[in-house]
């Protein structure tokens, strides 16, 4: 298929006070920008540089927290500039080992529906639901078609943050097929835990109940954050998703939702996870082919 490749500008390096270095790879979102953020931050991670406290790959940028008593922030910037020159995220032979995960979602569920109806006065279109509005502004004939598009192609976890464990996910389709919606006119003061939301070009699962401004499309039966680490998938940490994970937000029906909820309650739920060798350059030349392969590996 035709693929209008994105040319990234040179990175912009800036200091967030004396303890942070912020690197903007592009002001617009693209898979290319995220692949670059992931490649540079993983290279930095492997170097185990003295004085680097936190390495945070973000959607089209990245953020480093540094201890300036051990590493001069200006020296860190010079080092990162070096990595920008040496790391080639789109080299033909470049591949990363990643996880592909099936994330069930009950789209148009009663719980987020109840919530969004309470906040119609903060929405662009008080007469429609969030899904109806999103389907219309993205040119889908029905909510069903929109859900099919969301459920059809996988998403890349391009950043974790805001609150613990919240994955920002960008769909792995060319830009012209990206679904985009504005955030609420004024943020809601309430969002159910595990709500599947969408804002800008990003899908998220809210880890905990709280305020939120993303359009509400559904509810995930399984958690992305578990402070008690009761489920096996949380054995290594309280946060499930990792940057670079590939998630498929599969549309499920109410009976499957209830069955998964039951497994979560009993502590027996496990995500369906498969290992996948992901080659960014190859993906960009044939996104639909690679996506088909990802789904094949996931449900094999």
């Amino acid at each position: 298929m035709a693929n209008a490749s994105v040319e990234l500008p040179p990175a912009r390096y800036d200091h967030g006070g004396d303890e942070f270095v912020f690197v903007e790879l592009d002001r617009a979102m693209s898979l290319e920008a995220n692949f670059k953020a992931m490649a540079i931050t993983s290279a930095l991670q492997e170097e185990n540089l003295e004085g680097v406290l936190d390495i945070c790959p973000s959607n089209a940028s990245y953020l480093i927290r540094v201890d300036p008593d051990r590493l001069h922030p200006a020296e860190l910037v010079r080092h990162l500039e070096g990595l920008e020159r040496s790391v080639a995220p789109l080299a033909p032979d470049k591949a990363v080992r990643t996880r592909v995960v099936d994330v069930p979602v009950l789209y148009d569920d009663p719980w987020t529906h109840e919530t969004l109806m309470r906040f119609r006065d903060r929405h662009q279109d008080p007469e429609a639901t969030d899904l109806e509005y999103a389907a219309r502004v993205n040119g889908f004939a029905s909510v069903g078609e929109l859900v099919e598009a969301l459920s059809g192609s996988p998403f890349l976890v391009t950043m974790i943050g805001f609150v613990p464990g919240l994955p920002f996910c960008y769909q792995m389709v060319p830009r012209e097929r990206q679904i985009e919606v504005p955030k609420y006119v004024r943020p809601r003061t309430d969002t159910p835990e595990r709500a599947f939301g969408y804002g800008g070009a990003f899908a998220v699962v809210y880890p905990v109940r709280g305020a939120g401004g993303y359009q509400l499309f559904g509810l995930a039966p399984a958690p992305v954050f578990d402070r008690t680490q009761r489920l096996a998938d949380f054995e290594d940490g309280i946060v499930f998703p990792r940057p670079g994970d590939i998630l498929r937000y599969r549309s499920i029906d109410r009976s499957e939702f209830d069955a998964i909820r039951d497994e979560v309650e009993r502590g027996t739920f496990r995500y369906r996870i498969r290992e996948f060798e992901f080659a960014p350059a190859h993906f960009l030349t044939d996104p639909d082919g690679v996506n088909a392969q990802i789904l094949e590996v996931l449900y094999r």
């Binding site: 002001r27 973000s58 070009a201």
Partner: peptide, 18 residues
């Protein structure tokens, strides 16, 4: 820019320094 959102204060979501 693509992915930022329509509000003038919106940027493509990024990390916030403390």
């Amino acid at each position: 820019p693509h992915g930022a959102g329509s509000d003038p204060a919106n940027v493509v979501d990024l990390g916030y320094p403390l």
